[in-house]
Amino acid sequence: MTSDTPAKRRLRVFSRGRKAPSRARRRFGAAVRMLAALALAGGIYTAFAPGAFAEDNRQLSAAALEGKQLFDNSCISCHGRDAQGVDDKGPSLIGVGAASVEFQVGTGRMPMVRQEAQAEQKKPQFDETQTKQLAQYIQELGGGPQIPQGELVENLESNPEALARGGELFRVNCTSCHGFGGGGGALSSGKFAPALHDATPEQIYAAMLTGPQNMPVFGDNQLTPDEKREIITYITLQLQQDRDPGGLFNLGRYGPSTEGVAVFLVGITLLVFTALWIAGKS
């Protein structure tokens, strides 16, 4: 059951590097192999001591069982058996809820490649069904917040005020880190708030609900589901889908810093070349 894990993991670790693995990488690889061996030993132990877990498995739905399978393959080394957590490696996932899994796994942040300041968004390793199965497993394991069913973006035809209210809430709660234009921003010591340009409504909802990484949690008592939907409406309709009316390029909406670069790179450069042409010999 765990026999292919080390190979897969190693492949994943090394496929990112362009050069031959460094010493640190080799050591890391060794650690991974060690872990895999331990996990294998654990797996063998499980096979010979089926007692307690067999009962748990009975309560899991079919989807959750699939999820457990995936969890035991890819997540168990850091989050521990039954998502109880491993000290200094990964937190317990009891009670984090399906929303958290869908966000972390759906955006590719989990599984993490290595321990670093902040898990980076990357290509998801699991497809949508697998993510749902994993989420289902964690949900059934310990409960926790879930993304509600139904449309997460308000319909402006029937609720035209949602956009402005969402904007107001966005500026109160979100812009300090993600920026007025949703372009993201730096946090302390290499951490950052990601850009919201390609965040899906589900991801935004899950992030607010669960507070991934260093993001604060915005529980349903603080921002009601309606308010969350309004914020999502503002982000998707105003920040993601609306074309900027002020020009062909919006300079990333990063504010005066890119505008200052543009005035030198385009304005001054264009005019200096014109001046060179004017004064050059004909």
Binding site: V172, T175, S176, F180, F249, G255
Partner: peptide, 20 residues
């Protein structure tokens, strides 16, 4: 080039700020 899109910034409130 779009410059200073004030409509995204909202009205000034002492409690609101943007990164960057």
């Amino acid at each position: 080039f779009q410059i200073n899109p004030i409509w995204l910034f909202g009205p000034y409130r002492a409690s609101e700020v943007s990164s960057a």
